[in-house]
Design a binder for these strands. Structure first.
Lengths: 336, 336
DNA sequence: CTGAAAGCGCTTACAG
DNA sequence: CTGAAAGCGCTTACAG
């Protein structure tokens, strides 16, 4: 037996009150007498009534929906962020509309998003074309990009202090006595890669050093494996590699140990970036930089909710301090 | 400059047609002349009109929303499933509403879900109380539980053939010449654990064998680490362990190698379940059972969409064949 | 093919 | 506090 959808009118009839009274009962802060409220609640339970959130959204202009755009989840950093973000929005009374985007097809997806009257958009490691960013801004929908930075955009950004993070890695490797340092890049066009690399070179320069090699892994494990082989096919092989993120670093470590039969950290030190859960697993025990996902999420939610409540607020760019996590994939600096 | 929301009426006015004509232009299959359509489209572009999907949902009774309930994402199996499911629903024209649930608070969450008039619910490794399952059934909202099975429920289920999977593991270990075999369980009350364990014992029995020990890891890495220490603190230590899932198996392997200083597979063989991406990483190279997530997702989407289109369809229980993936965490059977 | 009109389920001034 | 009424943006018979 399938119940036809129960509406506020049905409840009103049963409780012998007006439809408005039913609506008020389910509107926090609306004025209803205790007696009316009780009758409405009783009738609602009996009929199995549940307010239609969609109709409410249409009339109130507040959908309670936040769109979350994610490009891929194989790098464990994203599930972590996704889970924390979702929980946080839920706790604040918002629902999360999830969109998996393909690079390049993001604009198409955003069109769908806008149809659903989302109140805000969070993009994780994905960037919005400037046209679309403007479109959102015009519509008054705040956009926060997490882990990516686009200068021209009207969107807010939340990123780790990638430049400082890169610098810290350089410092650790330099003080560890490494002399043949290499870098494995992520996607060349990503702001995270640019900043981590820039900070890394800056940090090396402070020690009067530079890299002996560079290869591009494109943020994939396969790319990183190939990049590693490339670096070790040269005359001068690295004694330390900074890999643009942990996800690639695991692949680099596997190749170094299993294909090249070298020891970590005795022959080569490896440093990653992100401090994803696997970095703490003993098989890798990877020295890395924590992006402090908790703080990133906190900032993201706070920026977005602020903009929802006070539409005058301008975009913001939050930079979360980087934190060095020293494990055993790197030789210890002498001072340690 | 913030555009006020553009509505179909605005477009109608600009295009000098009726509001109905605008609506029809955006309704696939509705009858509009080419001339009208063009005028509407032109006006829409000029004004930046986008149909309000929420209003459409209210009137048509089809929200186009599917709720996805996930309990946690730290086991990489879930992000994989989540990503594939989302993409598949998107491709079929549905949007995904994501809910992270806490065990025990699932009913509360489902109440919110129902308010959003979702057309279907997919629960990944989460179970619905029977009360709530009935509530959904009454409302005519199909529910599919992935990776969990509840006999009494009116929900459809999609699971790996966990019994056969467990049996295959037993067979592999028995034929590998192991004589002191142990089992590390997941959450005792989960159907996946029950079935994997039952199949495992059944398979051992076929070889006239049984286990020498059993410990409970509760599907967490910490629990699995402790379970491993417990098993190795007995007089008779295992030479093979079947761990209820890969996520725990990684922790087991770390403890065996780093804390107990034993070799895998020379001293102990390890088998997991799920074939998550990390199982293929060389540092673990874990023998495991693939749940064939692609096929699980395919079944899930197909069951749900079928029920949406033809409400007469009853619940279904799909069982996906298990597939043994032999890597190097296990001693090879003599026949190999 | 087209427009006027009714209606989806709700919120929210408005007047009492 | 309460109800009648207008209205959110849309779809969909209905009559032409």
């Amino acid at each position: 037996m399938r119940k036809p959808n129960v509406t506020s009118t049905d409840v009103a009839r049963r409780a012998s009150v007006s439809q408005s009274a039913v609506s008020r009962t389910f509107t926090p802060g609306a004025s209803v007498s205790e007696k009316t409220r009780e009758r409405v609640l009783k009738a609602s339970t009996e009929l199995g009534y549940r307010p239609n959130a969609l109709a409410r959204a249409v009339i109130s202009g507040r959908s309670g929906l936040i769109a979350l755009l994610v490009a891929y989840l194989d790098n464990q950093f994203y599930p972590v962020v996704l889970e924390k973000l979702s929980r946080s929005f839920q706790e604040h009374g918002y629902q999360v509309l999830l969109f998996m985007t393909d690079p390049g097809r993001q604009d198409e997806v955003v069109h769908q998003i806008l149809q659903f009257q989302v109140q805000g958009i969070v993009m994780v490691s994905a960037t919005l074309s400037s046209t679309l960013a403007k479109e959102c801004a015009d519509t008054g929908i705040p956009v926060v990009m997490v882990n990516r930075y686009v200068a021209t955009s009207s969107a807010s950004t939340v990123t780790s202090d990638n430049i400082e993070g890169g610098r810290m890695v350089a410092d650790l490797l330099a003080r560890g006595g490494h002399t043949r340092i290499a870098y494995i890049a992520g996607a060349e066009d990503s702001s995270t890669n640019r900043d981590r690399e820039a900070g890394f070179y800056k940090g090396l320069a402070e020690h009067g050093m530079t890299t002996i090699g560079r290869a591009v892994g494109g943020y994939t494990m396969e790319g990183a494996a190939q990049a590693t082989l490339d670096l070790f096919s040269k005359d001068k092989v690295p004694d330390a590699i900074f890999v643009a993120n942990d996800h690639m670093a695991f692949s680099v470590m596997d190749v170094i140990r299993n294909t090249l039969s070298l020891r970590i950290p005795e022959d080569v030190s490896i440093v990653g970036y992100d401090d994803v859960p696997e970095a703490g697993w003993k098989a890798y025990d990877l020295t890395t930089i924590s992006q402090s996902p908790d703080r990133m999420i906190e900032e993201t939610v706070s920026i977005l909710l602020n903009q929802l409540e006070n539409r005058a607020v301008r975009k913001r760019a939050a930079v979360i301090p980087a934190q060095l996590i020293v494990r055993n994939s790197t030789r210890k600096p002498v001072e340690f």
